[in-house]
Protein backbone atom coordinates (compact mmCIF):
# COMPACT_ATOMS: atom_id res chain seq x y z
CA UNK A 1 0.00 0.00 0.00
CA UNK A 2 1.55 3.25 -1.15
CA UNK A 3 1.75 6.44 0.83
CA UNK A 4 -1.22 8.01 -0.90
CA UNK A 5 -3.24 4.85 -1.14
CA UNK A 6 -6.99 5.19 -1.24
CA UNK A 7 -8.93 2.10 -0.33
CA UNK A 8 -11.68 1.13 -2.74
CA UNK A 9 -14.07 -1.69 -3.45
CA UNK A 10 -14.26 -3.18 -6.88
CA UNK A 11 -16.61 -5.92 -7.95
CA UNK A 12 -15.50 -7.90 -11.01
CA UNK A 13 -18.80 -8.47 -12.79
CA UNK A 14 -17.32 -11.33 -14.86
CA UNK A 15 -16.73 -13.29 -11.69
CA UNK A 16 -19.67 -12.44 -9.46
CA UNK A 17 -22.00 -15.43 -9.38
CA UNK A 18 -24.77 -13.80 -7.37
CA UNK A 19 -24.29 -16.13 -4.40
CA UNK A 20 -25.06 -13.40 -1.86
CA UNK A 21 -22.24 -14.71 0.32
CA UNK A 22 -20.76 -11.23 0.83
CA UNK A 23 -23.93 -9.73 2.26
CA UNK A 24 -24.54 -12.75 4.49
CA UNK A 25 -20.94 -12.65 5.72
CA UNK A 26 -21.26 -8.92 6.38
CA UNK A 27 -24.50 -9.28 8.31
CA UNK A 28 -23.06 -12.17 10.34
CA UNK A 29 -19.66 -10.63 11.06
CA UNK A 30 -21.11 -7.34 12.26
CA UNK A 31 -24.17 -8.92 13.86
CA UNK A 32 -26.43 -6.52 11.98
CA UNK A 33 -30.03 -6.19 13.06
CA UNK A 34 -32.85 -7.31 10.82
CA UNK A 35 -33.57 -5.09 7.79
CA UNK A 36 -30.10 -3.57 7.86
CA UNK A 37 -28.11 -4.67 4.85
CA UNK A 38 -24.85 -2.86 4.46
CA UNK A 39 -24.03 -4.89 1.38
CA UNK A 40 -26.29 -6.14 -1.37
CA UNK A 41 -25.92 -8.18 -4.51
CA UNK A 42 -27.86 -6.76 -7.44
CA UNK A 43 -28.38 -8.12 -10.92
CA UNK A 44 -28.28 -5.66 -13.77
CA UNK A 45 -30.21 -6.09 -17.04
CA UNK A 46 -32.03 -9.05 -15.59
CA UNK A 47 -33.56 -11.27 -18.25
CA UNK A 48 -31.72 -9.66 -21.15
CA UNK A 49 -29.59 -12.26 -22.87
CA UNK A 50 -25.81 -11.73 -22.74
CA UNK A 51 -26.33 -8.48 -20.86
CA UNK A 52 -27.03 -9.88 -17.44
CA UNK A 53 -24.44 -9.49 -14.76
CA UNK A 54 -24.37 -9.28 -10.99
CA UNK A 55 -22.60 -6.86 -8.74
CA UNK A 56 -22.07 -6.53 -5.06
CA UNK A 57 -22.68 -3.00 -3.84
CA UNK A 58 -22.30 -1.19 -0.55
CA UNK A 59 -20.96 2.20 0.42
CA UNK A 60 -18.51 3.15 -2.34
CA UNK A 61 -16.42 5.39 -0.07
CA UNK A 62 -16.52 8.25 -2.60
CA UNK A 63 -13.80 10.90 -2.58
CA UNK A 64 -16.42 13.65 -2.71
CA UNK A 65 -18.71 11.72 -0.33
CA UNK A 66 -22.05 13.51 -0.86
CA UNK A 67 -23.34 12.11 2.44
CA UNK A 68 -20.57 13.96 4.24
CA UNK A 69 -21.47 17.19 2.42
CA UNK A 70 -25.17 17.21 3.29
CA UNK A 71 -25.01 15.91 6.88
CA UNK A 72 -26.49 18.67 9.08
CA UNK A 73 -24.55 17.52 12.16
CA UNK A 74 -21.25 16.75 10.37
CA UNK A 75 -21.10 13.23 11.72
CA UNK A 76 -19.06 11.92 8.77
CA UNK A 77 -15.30 11.86 8.52
CA UNK A 78 -13.04 10.57 5.78
CA UNK A 79 -9.93 8.74 6.86
CA UNK A 80 -6.58 9.37 5.22
CA UNK A 81 -6.89 6.09 3.38
CA UNK A 82 -10.23 7.19 1.92
CA UNK A 83 -12.59 5.18 4.12
CA UNK A 84 -15.77 7.16 4.80
CA UNK A 85 -16.92 6.65 8.38
CA UNK A 86 -19.50 8.26 10.62
CA UNK A 87 -20.10 8.95 14.29
CA UNK A 88 -23.30 7.31 15.51
CA UNK A 89 -23.31 9.38 18.69
CA UNK A 90 -23.65 12.53 16.59
CA UNK A 91 -26.06 11.17 13.96
CA UNK A 92 -29.68 12.29 14.39
CA UNK A 93 -31.19 9.91 11.83
CA UNK A 94 -32.46 12.59 9.43
CA UNK A 95 -31.70 10.43 6.36
CA UNK A 96 -30.21 13.29 4.32
CA UNK A 97 -27.20 11.05 3.62
CA UNK A 98 -29.59 8.55 2.05
CA UNK A 99 -31.01 11.26 -0.24
CA UNK A 100 -27.51 12.31 -1.27
CA UNK A 101 -26.23 8.77 -1.88
CA UNK A 102 -26.54 7.42 -5.45
CA UNK A 103 -26.70 3.81 -4.18
CA UNK A 104 -28.99 3.86 -1.18
CA UNK A 105 -26.06 2.75 0.99
CA UNK A 106 -27.18 4.38 4.28
CA UNK A 107 -29.54 2.14 6.24
CA UNK A 108 -31.95 3.09 9.00
CA UNK A 109 -33.28 0.79 11.69
CA UNK A 110 -36.95 1.59 12.31
CA UNK A 111 -36.57 0.87 16.00
CA UNK A 112 -38.30 3.79 17.70
CA UNK A 113 -41.94 4.19 18.60
CA UNK A 114 -44.24 5.51 15.83
CA UNK A 115 -41.73 4.52 13.17
CA UNK A 116 -39.02 7.02 14.05
CA UNK A 117 -35.75 6.38 12.35
CA UNK A 118 -32.79 5.31 14.44
CA UNK A 119 -29.25 6.42 13.69
CA UNK A 120 -27.78 5.59 10.32
CA UNK A 121 -25.79 2.44 9.67
CA UNK A 122 -23.62 1.75 6.67
CA UNK A 123 -20.61 -0.19 5.43
CA UNK A 124 -17.46 0.84 7.33
CA UNK A 125 -15.13 -1.20 5.11
CA UNK A 126 -14.69 -3.12 8.37
CA UNK A 127 -12.90 -0.15 9.90
CA UNK A 128 -15.19 0.50 12.86
CA UNK A 129 -15.87 4.05 13.95
CA UNK A 130 -14.56 6.92 16.05
CA UNK A 131 -14.61 4.93 19.30
CA UNK A 132 -11.40 3.39 20.64
CA UNK A 133 -10.19 0.80 18.13
CA UNK A 134 -11.42 -2.71 18.90
CA UNK A 135 -13.19 -1.53 22.03
CA UNK A 136 -16.45 -3.07 23.11
CA UNK A 137 -18.29 0.17 22.33
CA UNK A 138 -16.95 0.25 18.78
CA UNK A 139 -17.95 -3.34 18.20
CA UNK A 140 -21.44 -2.74 19.53
CA UNK A 141 -22.02 0.30 17.30
CA UNK A 142 -20.12 -0.43 14.12
CA UNK A 143 -19.23 -4.12 14.16
CA UNK A 144 -15.77 -5.59 13.64
CA UNK A 145 -12.69 -3.52 12.98
CA UNK A 146 -10.73 -5.83 10.72
CA UNK A 147 -8.69 -3.10 9.01
CA UNK A 148 -6.94 -2.34 12.30
CA UNK A 149 -5.89 -5.98 12.48
CA UNK A 150 -4.53 -5.89 8.95
CA UNK A 151 -7.35 -8.07 7.63
CA UNK A 152 -9.34 -7.64 4.43
CA UNK A 153 -13.01 -6.64 4.92
CA UNK A 154 -15.04 -9.76 5.56
CA UNK A 155 -17.11 -9.53 2.35
CA UNK A 156 -14.04 -9.56 0.12
CA UNK A 157 -12.26 -12.10 2.30
CA UNK A 158 -14.95 -14.74 1.88
CA UNK A 159 -15.92 -14.01 -1.74
CA UNK A 160 -15.72 -17.50 -3.25
CA UNK A 161 -14.87 -16.39 -6.79
CA UNK A 162 -12.74 -13.46 -5.64
CA UNK A 163 -14.99 -11.13 -7.59
CA UNK A 164 -15.12 -8.58 -4.80
CA UNK A 165 -11.77 -6.87 -4.46
CA UNK A 166 -10.73 -4.30 -1.92
CA UNK A 167 -7.56 -2.32 -1.47
CA UNK A 168 -5.51 0.45 -2.97
CA UNK A 169 -7.17 1.49 -6.23
CA UNK A 170 -3.93 1.23 -8.20
CA UNK A 171 -3.32 -2.33 -7.07
CA UNK A 172 -6.90 -3.33 -7.76
CA UNK A 173 -6.76 -2.02 -11.29
CA UNK A 174 -3.54 -4.01 -11.81
CA UNK A 175 -5.24 -7.20 -10.68
CA UNK A 176 -8.23 -6.46 -12.88
CA UNK A 177 -6.04 -5.77 -15.92
CA UNK A 178 -4.19 -9.02 -15.37
CA UNK A 179 -7.45 -10.91 -15.26
CA UNK A 180 -8.70 -9.34 -18.46
CA UNK A 181 -5.42 -10.05 -20.26
CA UNK A 182 -5.29 -13.67 -19.19
CA UNK A 183 -8.88 -14.18 -20.25
CA UNK A 184 -8.21 -12.50 -23.55
CA UNK A 185 -11.72 -12.56 -25.00
CA UNK A 186 -15.35 -12.51 -24.17
CA UNK A 187 -15.30 -9.31 -22.19
CA UNK A 188 -18.89 -8.14 -22.18
CA UNK A 189 -18.76 -4.93 -20.22
CA UNK A 190 -16.44 -2.04 -19.75
CA UNK A 191 -14.62 -1.92 -16.45
CA UNK A 192 -15.84 0.90 -14.25
CA UNK A 193 -13.89 2.91 -11.76
CA UNK A 194 -15.35 4.64 -8.79
CA UNK A 195 -14.07 7.91 -7.47
CA UNK A 196 -16.55 10.74 -7.16
CA UNK A 197 -20.33 10.51 -6.86
CA UNK A 198 -21.27 13.81 -8.46
CA UNK A 199 -19.33 16.54 -10.17
CA UNK A 200 -17.00 15.93 -13.04
CA UNK A 201 -19.53 13.98 -15.08
CA UNK A 202 -22.28 16.57 -14.86
Amino acid sequence: MGEFARLNFYCDEHRCINCDGCSVACAEAHELPEYISRRKVITMNEGIENMEYSLSIACMHCTDAPCEQVCPVDCFYIREDGIVLHDKDKCIGCAYCLYACPFGAPQFPLDGAFGTKGVMDKCTMCAGGPEETNSHAERELYGQNRISEGKVPVCAAMCSTKALLVGDSAEISDIYRERILSKGHGVKTQPYGWDVAYGKKM
Binding site: P72, V73, D89, K90, C91, I92
Partner: peptide, 15 residues
Protein backbone atom coordinates in the same frame (compact mmCIF):
# COMPACT_ATOMS: atom_id res chain seq x y z
CA UNK B 1 -31.40 23.93 15.41
CA UNK B 2 -31.50 20.98 13.01
CA UNK B 3 -30.25 23.04 10.07
CA UNK B 4 -27.43 24.35 12.28
CA UNK B 5 -27.04 20.87 13.80
CA UNK B 6 -23.26 20.84 13.52
CA UNK B 7 -23.03 24.07 15.55
CA UNK B 8 -24.92 22.32 18.33
CA UNK B 9 -22.67 19.29 18.04
CA UNK B 10 -25.36 16.85 16.96
CA UNK B 11 -26.10 13.92 19.23
CA UNK B 12 -28.81 13.67 21.86
CA UNK B 13 -29.81 17.34 21.92
CA UNK B 14 -30.33 17.72 18.18
CA UNK B 15 -31.97 14.28 18.08
Amino acid sequence: IMIFGSTFGGGAFVR
